[in-house]
Design a binder for these strands. Structure first.
Lengths: 198, 198
DNA sequence: CCATATAAGATACGTTTAGTATCTTATATT
DNA sequence: AATATAAGATACTAAACGTATCTTATATGG
């Protein structure tokens, strides 16, 4: 089970260099065995250091993994797509988010949601949603300027709807969101909802 | 940590009687300590039996807990509400589902999704969705008969939308879905979507 | 450049739980 | 009444957790 003796190092790493190495190891271990089978011991071994070093910085598995995700898989970074029409923007955004969600995987996302107790969990979830809503509002504002939608119809809940559905798709089916699922979310749900006349 | 010595029993239970007792113990333990801290040992102790007995019937924690949920918390059972208008039916259904989801709790749901690997997980998820869609279609068919919606607009994805959003709410915020969230799902999202004219 | 403080890294430990295996014994079956 | 079956007790190995202790490399600063 990933038992590399992890050849002893020539020099002794410290501070940021060491931190980066551990996060990289966590990220690699995640890819290798998945979240539920990831252990702190294995991460330490992979980073060619010891458990104590890991525990000194990250108190628990979900905290460590979350730090690795923040470093290596920023979910919503990047400019809002600007293809010239709303549908194109939505598809581009959802495909990007889907790609990143799928990189992380249903098992890890579910595992984190299951283990990451405390206020921080909710705060982070709300953060992520806020950033998603922000990006969506950028897209929708441009669409409104083109006369495609009316901004006064858009509530935060509507703006977060596409990404919510995408995440829901991954979490409940445990399979990567398919291309057709993305198109359905846009064409069956979101566009009819925001383009209704009235 | 729930260390009742569990006074020795007079008679020795077998078959169904024993099975029910273990599932009841699992259900109680779930309520007592939550999913992540539920252990097979504690369930066995609570049921006044031994680990081996539990393992003989249920191979793992998620399988055991899922069996307990099926017995004690059927998510979608019951007739489709029939209040006389679509909005009333939707609110009634969502409130019922929300109540049951909240009884189970975000931690358990996330934990199961995280641990329950294999085909069965996806099958069950699809089952649950199918039953939800079925109930929704009953409601929507009656609404169509009253002229409130047009059935030809309704796809499976649209029919499962309200319950999907409800589950998403619980899983990501980790708090019981609020009454206002339910109203928003109905009034901001679902009704505008299915009652659009065209 | 040496003295000192700090933190890396190794190691060991006590604990918990998983999961299996073995054994005795109550009880259902014939 | 004899026999087969499964309950229930117990013991065991094997992770992995999280902590504590100890040595030693290296950064710092006088």
């Amino acid at each position: 089970m990933s038992r590399k003796p992890a050849l002893p190092r020539a020099t002794r790493r410290r501070g940021e260099e060491l931190e980066v190495a551990v996060l990289q190891a966590a990220w690699d271990e995640l890819a290798a065995v998945g979240y539920t089978r990831l252990t702190i011991e294995a991460v330490a071994t992979r980073a060619a250091t010891s458990k104590a070093v890991v525990y000194r910085r990250w108190r628990s598995r979900p905290i460590l993994v979350l730090a690795a995700l923040r470093a290596y898989a920023p979910m919503l970074s990047g400019e809002a797509p600007n293809t010239g029409d709303l549908r194109g923007d939505l598809l581009a955004l959802l495909r990007r988010v889907a790609k990143r969600l799928n990189e992380i995987g249903a098992e890890t996302l579910n595992g984190l949601l299951a283990e990451y107790v405390g206020d921080t969990a909710r705060e982070i979830a709300l953060d992520v949603r806020a950033i998603g809503v922000e990006t969506m509002m950028t897209i929708l504002t441009r669409a409104a300027a083109r006369g495609e939608v009316r901004l006064e119809h858009i509530t935060p809940r509507i703006a977060s709807l596409p990404i919510d559905l995408l995440r829901n798709e991954l979490l409940t089916t445990r399979t990567p969101a398919s291309a057709t699922a993305i198109v359905e979310i846009v064409d069956e749900i979101f566009l009819p909802l925001v383009q209704r006349n009235g």
